[in-house]
Simulated scan of single mutants.
Amino acid sequence: MSTPPLADLTATTLTITGHDGDEIEAYTARPHGDARRGGVVVIHHMPGYDRESKEIVRRFAELGYDAICPNLYHREAPGASPDDAAAVARAQGGVPDERLIGEVAGAAAWLRALPTSNGKVGTIGYCSGGRQSVLAGTALDVDAVVDCYGAFVTGDVPEDFPLKVTNLVDRLGGLKAPVLGLFGNEDRFPGPVQVDEFEAILTGQGTPYEFHRYEGAGHAFFAVNRPSYNAAAANDGWERIEAFYGTHLGN
């Protein structure tokens, strides 16, 4: 697929209402123009609300969506660098699930209140954010869910894992939106067995989904600034995301 031309867009940091009515920081990018369009909530990875996450937000704006990424670590370390904020959040066990749902709900509400909104909102997350994208889909009215190698949607969490998380097996019955899953076959969390279990659950309950698995790719294959980056898998994955959102978010 050829790279689409850069669209005129505006990107900025702002404050939105998150869980329990708290004000949190978020980063947004929006195409110029008043055409009706879908919105995308980008859920950042465990390393935090960083430059790479903001680049993804801008990429969705280039593709024609209003996009926003809430800073999930705003409460723990407002104003801190992404590395420092992530370290503080990790030391406290990560973002509690119910708070995550509240933050994504606030971001989705912000998108739907825009005059350009067509009423449709999708979620996407990478690494821990992949699990959280699915989590949000089990609890909120969203139109499309993208899971990029999210660990512990299914499977057992190791006892020494630093975050206080459980798998989502008991919640997956609430997942009504279609799901796109992108996974590396060399990944351990989630490994192929966990992906198989996730797929079997979605099949059994009739949730629409499409999964794509990449040979030779491990965890974080989208991360262009890390040794795990796999260009072939990432490029195909972006094509899948663009097509999936084009179908379900109306662009």
Rank of each mutant, 00 (worst) to 15 (best):
S133F: 10
S128I: 15
A223V: 11
F60M: 01
V157T: 02
Q132V: 00
E215P: 08
A144C: 10
A89Y: 05
N118W: 11
N230W: 03
T28F: 03
Q92F: 14
P82W: 10
L135C: 01
P70Y: 03
V142Y: 05
R112D: 07
F189I: 10
R51W: 12
A200G: 04
E55N: 14
L114V: 07
G33P: 04
Q205F: 14
A200I: 05
E62F: 15
D196G: 10
F161H: 13
A234C: 11
G130W: 08
R171E: 11
H74T: 06
E199G: 14
K120I: 10
S53P: 06
I68F: 12
E239S: 13
E215V: 09
A108D: 00
F189G: 02
V41Y: 04
G246V: 06
W238F: 09
V41R: 00
E186N: 13
G250R: 07
K164D: 13
I241S: 05
D196K: 05
D141I: 11
T13R: 15
G102M: 08
A233Q: 06
T116W: 06
L72I: 02
A85S: 10
K54N: 11
G106D: 12
G216N: 08
F222D: 02
T17R: 13
C127A: 03
T116C: 07
A200Y: 02
G129R: 03
G206E: 03
A77V: 01
D8N: 15
E25G: 11
E215H: 15
L249K: 07
R58D: 08
P96I: 07
E52Y: 14
G18H: 04
L135K: 00
H19I: 06
Q92A: 15
D84I: 11
L14R: 09
D156Q: 09
H219M: 12
G184D: 02
G150E: 02
R171K: 14
L135A: 01
G173W: 06
H74I: 03
A91Y: 05
L140V: 08
R59D: 06
A89I: 02
F161I: 07
P78F: 03
F60Q: 00
G129L: 01
L180I: 00
F161R: 00
A107P: 11
W110K: 13
G206F: 08
Q132F: 10
A217W: 06
S81Q: 08
Y229W: 07
D83T: 14
V95M: 15
K120Y: 12
V57M: 12
A217E: 02
A61F: 09
A177H: 05
A177P: 04
L14Y: 10
